[in-house]
Nucleic acid binder design. Sequence first.
DNA 1: GTCTATAAGAAGATAGAC
DNA 2: GTCTATCTTCTTATAGAC
Lengths: 206, 206
Amino acid sequence: MDTKQRILDEALTLFSEKGYANVYVADIAERVGIKAPSLYKHYKNKQAIFDAIISEMDQRFSDQAKQLQISGTDASVDADIYKNISEEQLIKIGRDLFLYFLHDDYTRRFRKMLTIEQFRDKKLATVYQQQYADMPLSYQGMLLGLMVSAGVLKTDNVEIMTLHFYAPIYMLLTICDRDPSREAASLVTLEEHIKQFDRLYGREKK
Amino acid sequence: MDTKQRILDEALTLFSEKGYANVYVADIAERVGIKAPSLYKHYKNKQAIFDAIISEMDQRFSDQAKQLQISGTDASVDADIYKNISEEQLIKIGRDLFLYFLHDDYTRRFRKMLTIEQFRDKKLATVYQQQYADMPLSYQGMLLGLMVSAGVLKTDNVEIMTLHFYAPIYMLLTICDRDPSREAASLVTLEEHIKQFDRLYGREKK
DNA sequence: GTCTATAAGAAGATAGAC
DNA sequence: GTCTATCTTCTTATAGAC
């Protein structure tokens, strides 16, 4: 990784732990292995580093959205897949979503940075909203909607059903961001959540 | 309100909007209507102001916990109340919780401050965890548990049921903190959530 | 308790050699 | 592109008069 990219990487790590204002240009430089003034050959100033992180993320997010749309289209073509989806597969969907958000290094650091900076900048609040509330709800809503169409799940309100699926995942995620030692317990809770979700909305209806 | 208290109040407002590091002692003083140096007659330094806010909150929280325990004890004595609880009453419980968290000025500002500062100080992460995850889950769990005992709701896993009740409320709360203009829509969603929760866990079981 | 003046130090950014 | 030296500005905090 070249120096310009390493600066972004180390800056993101520091911003996600301490927040923009508590990170000094010299701290970033030190982690990169250069002195502070050298950093100004790569970026105009501290704010430009922050802005570059946001731009890079915008790019990744829009790539990702494109990916999801493609797989979304595929998914609706192969709606049959969801006809016979098992409880285990539903658990896997939730668990994969959770672990991706939690463990993907870039995603995790960026989410923590947004968490810290969200009230200082309306644009950042919007990005957070889209990325961790609206987009997951809309994507999961599409998947669950297919399962409803396939007759695997039953509801007259897919939107609320999706909230019931995703909100616990989101809440467990924020819990683990604050305290990673709760990850194991959260994974157990997550699995129980989806099992119960599955029973409530479809299977094993008593 | 005396000056010493007004300092805490204005400081909390600013900290919750910009974060500790982005608030200058002079900003706080200006809002109180004094000059920065005067502020040092009331508090040793900037950190002492922050610490005083945390202490005050600790006090409020422990008072509140005591209150809940008392009403909790009362509630379990009068478990009969929950035998005939209506859907409207369940909606009211969720709505009141949501609106209290969202509109109570002190609670709202403190929550936003904790949100911003949580990754810088393990103690703050713990306070957040207790106040917005563990305590609500445990208190709501007790209420919902009583309803299960009373036969109004049915489940073999009260803990997950409680997560299903509270996680959507929590998520909608964080959404409104980021963007207050979404409050009206969130209240509609909240109501639909509880209606569906009520159907899923008890009433109108098809 | 409040003020003005000011000290002390931190942090961002630039100049210019290599 | 990286360094050392340095400038500038901002911010906390203190001194001491009123």
